[in-house]
Design a protein around this nucleic acid. Structure first.
Lengths: 300, 300
DNA sequence: TTTAACCGGTGCAAAAAATGCACCGCTTTT
DNA sequence: AAAAGCGGTGCATTTTTTGCACCGGTTAAA
């Protein structure tokens, strides 16, 4: 799309931080790029970059323009997909930013299922923490976010929210594996593996521990739930996850039990999009479907 | 803004119904315009005009594209105003589609008041019936609609709703002028002036009359409330309006009384915008203010 | 049936716009 | 003091866009 060229160039400059670097990235000369930006600024009626000794940087006006640019580009491809949809075939691309818990079972299964019905729809799946996931939405880098306990919620429009109690996992021979009710204090008494601090589950656990005047003492701290899931099978200890990240299969090698909600408040898994944005057909349909599946499975 | 040129051309062609006519309107040759459209279609990946023997017409894909174009142009000027807002001064343009009732008192007063505070903000005020008003919003021809009992299309996002009972007006020497309660049957017994059928007040009256097994028999039917307001002073008869279209001043030359809500259900005046659209700063602020004033005055 | 009026589309040369190159003045870094 | 990196500019060159003349087809009037 020729007339968006300038927009892509502006984006490149803002990313590179200098006109010369961006020019190299985009395979044109710096002078040509320089003049395009000058022309845009003059037509737009205001500078959008501040000139620094070492390069350029977007000024506040530029930030607004960049946001506009991203929204336009995304909306144009939405229109293109909608047109393709008119002529029968459903195709398109769906990009999802999600928490780790969705990676092992839920998303692979649902995406595969969706793709058997709509083989021309492709997907991007990006693991992001809850802050990054919302950032992804507002830069139009992802269409949908599926995140446990996100932070801001300003530009975040909730499509559905599913309660997910923090759950412990351990090997079947662990003493707690036969307990009726899992209390937080017991978990903290046993050796435990915790996710790193920026992860929502860790936040919930820390806050609740503090309320009990207890402290955590992880024997391993990791940002990988996959690692945690495997580790509890090697050393007698306790790991944590939310139900959707755990296989719903009695044959799984570890035992899982929800922690009593008396100790840790139940968190929510949110499916959301950028507030006010019209999603591409494919993404909108997929979102509705995921919402329906989630609500049915965890009967909200 | 150079890169929107093609978009303006497409809009012109769709308006003119033929490439040659549009070319004349836009002061370029038909061949140049023709090729721009062909190039756009090839880049976009689909035809947007269907070629007819007597000219061209937008196809469904083209309708989608045109909608996108309008949204993009409107959003860009929104960004420009927002940037101007950054540098201190509030400026911009606010376009309003409204029912006739807003013309004589409410909008002139409020717009004048707003402009004393923000002299660089300009306005467009367009009288539209309730169907046209919503159409204006969805083509981005107006930012706001202030309409009595709109048809409620899907794209209409309500900012606020104010109850407005149908009200009769008559000269002070009319027999009903001293009545305690105005009943519809009495109105229909006296000579009455009615708005034309596509106007909401007429709809409400007709529906209610039908419920009473009565029929209307207007001595004058008009699409101008201004005419009606003046006419009741010349012949002894009854006119209709909603409160916001009537001066809130005891010195007014005619008497006004609300019709009992037992007879005619109370209608609503709606302030609304296009669903999902981000309004320009000026429009958004003005809308909030109007909403506050309406809600205070008619204490909702 | 003929004819005139429009319509969209195309080849080609002219006009306009964008680009690349060489170079300037400036600041920071070495 | 020199080198490296930056944004910006004049000018020749390349690329893109436009205007002109004209084609084939359809419609509507003569």
């Amino acid at each position: 799309m020729k007339h968006l060229q300038t927009f892509h160039l502006i984006e490149a400059v803002s990313r590179a931080g200098s006109i010369r670097k961006a020019a190299e990235d985009m395979n044109i000369t710096a002078s040509a790029l320089n003049r395009r930006i000058q022309r845009f600024e003059s037509e737009f009626g205001s500078q959008i970059f501040e000139r620094l000794p070492r390069g350029v940087r977007l000024n506040p006006a530029g930030e607004l323009v960049l946001q506009h640019i991203r929204s336009q580009i995304s909306d144009l491809t939405r229109v293109q997909n909608q047109v393709a949809d008119l002529s029968g075939e459903r195709r398109g691309h769906i990009s999802i930013a999600c928490s780790q818990a969705l990676l092992p079972y839920f998303l692979p299964a649902e995406i595969a299922r969706y793709r058997t019905e709509h083989p021309r729809v492709s997907f991007s799946v990006n693991v992001r923490d809850r802050a990054q996931a919302e950032e992804e939405l507002s830069t139009f880098a992802s269409d949908l976010a599926l995140v446990f306990e996100p932070v801001h919620l300003v530009d975040f429009e909730v499509i559905c929210a599913i309660p997910q109690p923090v759950t412990v996992l351990m090997s079947p021979d662990h003493p707690l594996a036969r307990a009726d009710e899992i209390r937080l204090r017991d978990c903290l008494d046993y050796p435990h593996v915790l996710p790193t601090t920026h992860i929502a589950i860790r936040h919930l656990i820390e806050a609740s521990a503090h309320r009990l005047s207890r402290t955590t003492a992880p024997i391993v701290e990791t940002d990988s739930f996959e690692f945690m899931r495997h580790y509890v099978l090697r050393e007698k200890c306790i790991g944590f996850q939310i139900p959707i990240g755990l296989k719903d299969d009695p044959a799984r090698p570890y035992v899982t039990k929800e922690i009593s909600s008396k100790d840790i408040p139940v968190g929510n898994l949110f499916l959301g999009q950028l507030k006010g944005r019209t999603l591409p057909v494919a993404s909108a349909r997929f979102a509705l479907r995921i919402a329906a599946i989630l609500e049915e499975r965890y009967d909200v």
